[in-house]
Design a protein around this nucleic acid. Structure first.
Lengths: 226, 226
DNA sequence: ACCTGAACACCGTTCAAGT
DNA sequence: ACCTGAACACCGTTCAAGT
């Protein structure tokens, strides 16, 4: 048994890194990326802005820590899939859903390359690539491609949600507006975009996301000489 | 330090949207994303912050416009490649290089989904997919995957440059540090990441980027051939 | 050790007032 | 019409001072 000599709580609970991170996540989820300020945070924690700096280096550190909490939770959840391919798909989808549920995680991941949150995903996918028999020298480029795709699409998708929110539209109205704009483009300069505008309106982000994953997985397989 | 009166009259040209955008690009290129402020911009243009708002809606509008200038320049440059596949590769690489040269373009693209700059790339790639014989119903998901990959990796790469800059390291030193951190991870929890740490140190971003593109192109081909 | 909160050096944006 | 620049409502971060 470790722990405290002076067991009685001072206030509710005393301030701690974990409590700060937990409050940050709540703030980010409810008010978006712009909702996380040291003032809002300190108010919610019934303290002063300066106190937070005792537990956290700066805002970027705080964002990365909040992000890592979500990613760790996501990567630790059990995933069903029998084959390496199925597991990669499942892991990718779990990340997609996590970013969709917490759009701020998308931009946080981009801003902390090579940090712990990214590494969790990298590791998870990398292990499956080994099982797939991707040779050592190709492993880095292959995970890198998959990881970048996952973070890229997730981030893009989060940005969509964010913008739609900012304009007080729901997601489908936002896509509807973009789709309309596309179909009014100059037919000579933008034939393809015009032609695809309709698909934009009715598409399913999750499905499209998986198409890309499958494209890459099938590319990996075919270079295995299958 | 004396403020010199330069011989040239500063406001020889009147303010215009184009002049503002041009100055913004210069500022972004020289001082990074945080270098673009309405104060710095108005000083450079020898005017007041308020004047800029006559030509530009807000900062986000300004960023998107600056971004579009770079993307338009990149997409209008001639590209060599005989086959649709080669052209897609060349277009992708051109975007990679543009984002590498102007890291702020990466984040700007993410923050303006469906806007003109993205559409330029979408159109360019989409036309080649038609030539490749991708059927109508699959066109959206396929461009979407390619586009997201390009923007995702480009953005990630730009973030790397940005962070390295912030820490006053050059790029390879930054990667060296990340690589060292990775090789010190717990061997039981992160075997793959540790194993791949060496490849991170010596890898070439451009080459890795192309690996992903080729993975997708070969996935597209193999689903055509079936 | 941990916390407080005022103060500092910035932002983007607005707007009455000028030409 | 276009521009000016002070003013407003915020930020992240610091730090002397408290417990």
């Amino acid at each position: 048994m470790v722990k405290k000599a002076r067991g009685t709580q001072r206030r509710e609970e005393s301030l701690s890194r974990d409590r700060i991170i937990e409050a940050s996540i709540a703030l980010l989820d409810s008010s978006g990326e712009s909702g996380l300020t040291f003032r809002a945070l300190s108010e919610r924690l019934a303290t002063g802005p300066g106190a937070i700096y005792w537990h956290v280096a700066n805002k970027s550190d705080l964002m990365t820590a909040a992000c890592d909490t979500i990613v760790a939770r996501t990567m630790n959840a059990p995933v069903d899939g029998a084959t390496p391919k199925a597991i990669i798909r499942a892991v990718a989808l779990a990340m997609f859903d996590a970013i969709d549920a917490h759009p701020w995680v998308g931009s946080a991941l981009t801003r902390a390359p090579g940090q712990l949150p990214t590494v969790r995903v990298l590791e998870r996918i990398g292990q499956q690539l080994c099982s797939l028999g991707v040779p050592d020298e190709e492993q880095w480029a292959t995970v890198s491609a998959l990881l970048n795709y996952i973070l890229g699409v997730g981030g893009q998708n989060a940005a969509n949600t964010h913008i739609a929110q900012e304009q007080d539209l729901d997601r489908s109205n936002f896509l509807g507006e973009v789709s309309t704009a596309w179909s009014q483009l100059d037919p000579d300069e933008y034939p393809f975009t015009r032609g695809v505008a309709g698909q934009l309106r009715v598409h399913d982000d999750r499905v499209d996301f998986l198409v890309g994953i499958d494209l890459m997985l099938s590319g990996i397989e075919s270079s295995r000489g299958r």
